[in-house]
C-alpha cells in the first residue's frame, strides 16, 4: 500500500523575463489501487505537474511538498524517484538514437530491480508484454522512440509500465494521438498492470474518451495551475457535456 501525497505544490519555469509561476498550490493524494483523472484545458499546467513530480530539471519548485509513503520525493534525483516507485508515461516520449529498445528496457529493469533480470525469463517477459500491446517483435531492435508513430510511442510507454512495475504511475495524455483500436489496447495494458499490482494512477487527459476504458475513482478539474473542482466519475460526464468554459472564464 503506497501513498503519493502532493501538498500546496507551487512550480515556476525560467523564461526570458524571469520566472513564471505555473502551478499555484496543488493538493492531491493518490493511494495504491486508486485511479485519479486530472482533466483540464490545454496550458492549464497538467504536464508541469507530471514533470515536476518526475523531477524534470526545467521546473523549479517554489513551494509545497511531494512525498511517497512519507519520504520526500522532491529531494530525490530523477532516477531515485523511479526507483522509489514512480513512473511517468510522457505526453511526448523522447527519441534516443542508437540505443535499442532491448538495451534500454534491460538497463532500466536492472536499475529499478537492483539486479539484472535473468536472461531466460526476461526475454519471455518482454515478448509477452509486447505481444499483449500488439507490438511487432522488431521493435526490440529499433532505437528508442526513433521514427515511432505517435501510437507506437504510447505503446512503448505502457510496455515500460508493465515491465518496471511502479507503485504510482502518472499517465500524461496517453490517449492523445491514438485511434480507437490503439486506445483500447493501451487502456487494456494499463488495466492489466493495475489488476496485477494494485497500481495507483494519475490519469491526465484533455478528453473524456479514455475514461470509457480506464474507469476513474476520482475526477479533478485542473485550471490555471490548480485543482478547481473535484468529484466522482459523474464529474467527467459533466465536462463531456459542458467543456471547460466555466473554469477558464472565471
Amino acid at each position: 500500500m503506497s501513498t503519493l501525497e502532493i501538498k500546496g505544490l507551487q512550480v515556476a519555469v525560467a523564461t526570458e523575463n524571469g520566472f513564471t509561476d505555473i502551478l499555484r498550490g496543488v493538493d492531491l493524494t493518490i493511494k495504491s489501487g486508486e485511479t485519479h483523472a486530472i482533466m483540464g484545458p490545454n496550458g492549464s499546467g497538467k504536464s508541469t505537474l507530471a514533470y515536476s513530480i518526475a523531477g524534470h530539471p526545467k521546473y523549479t519548485i517554489t513551494g509545497g511538498s511531494v512525498t511517497l509513503d512519507g519520504v520526500d520525493v522532491l529531494a530525490m534525483s530523477v532516477d531515485e524517484r523511479a526507483k522509489a516507485g514512480l513512473f511517468l508515461a510522457m505526453q511526448y516520449p523522447v527519441e534516443v538514437p542508437g540505443v535499442s529498445v532491448t538495451n534500454f528496457l534491460r538497463t532500466a529493469a536492472t536499475a529499478i530491480r537492483g539486479e539484472a533480470p535473468k536472461v531466460r525469463t526476461w526475454v519471455g517477459e518482454v515478448k509477452e508484454a509486447m505481444a499483449a500491446l500488439n507490438m511487432d517483435s522488431n521493435f526490440a531492435e529499433r532505437s528508442v522512440n526513433e521514427g515511432f508513430s505517435g501510437g507506437e510511442k504510447k505503446r512503448h510507454e505502457i510496455l515500460q509500465l508493465e515491465l518496471l512495475k511502479p507503485k504510482i504511475a502518472i499517465l500524461d495524455e496517453t490517449d492523445s494521438g491514438l485511434d480507437v483500436d490503439a486506445l483500447r489496447i493501451v487502456s487494456e495494458g494499463v488495466n492489466r498492470v493495475k489488476a496485477n499490482s494494485d497500481l495507483g494512477i494519475m490519469l491526465i487527459t484533455h478528453y473524456t474518451r479514455i475514461l470509457r476504458y480506464i474507469k476513474p475513482d476520482f475526477v479533478h478539474v485542473f485550471a490555471a495551475g490548480k485543482i478547481v473542482e473535484e468529484g466522482g466519475p459523474e464529474l467527467a460526464d459533466k465536462l463531456e457535456e459542458k467543456g471547460y468554459a466555466e473554469y477558464t472564464t472565471a
Binding site: A54, G55, H56, P57, S77, V78, D79, R81, A82, K83, F87, L88, M90, P93, V94, E95, V96, P97, G98, V99, N103, F104, T107, A108, A111, I112, S143, V144, Q160, L164
Partner: peptide
Amino acid sequence: QLFYLSSRGIPAELARRLVIRGFFA
C-alpha cells in the same frame, strides 16, 4: 534524452554513456 532515461531509473552517468554510445553506434 538524459531525463527520459533517468526517469526510468537509469542513473545519470550511465544514461549519458548510453546516449553517447548511441550517438556513435
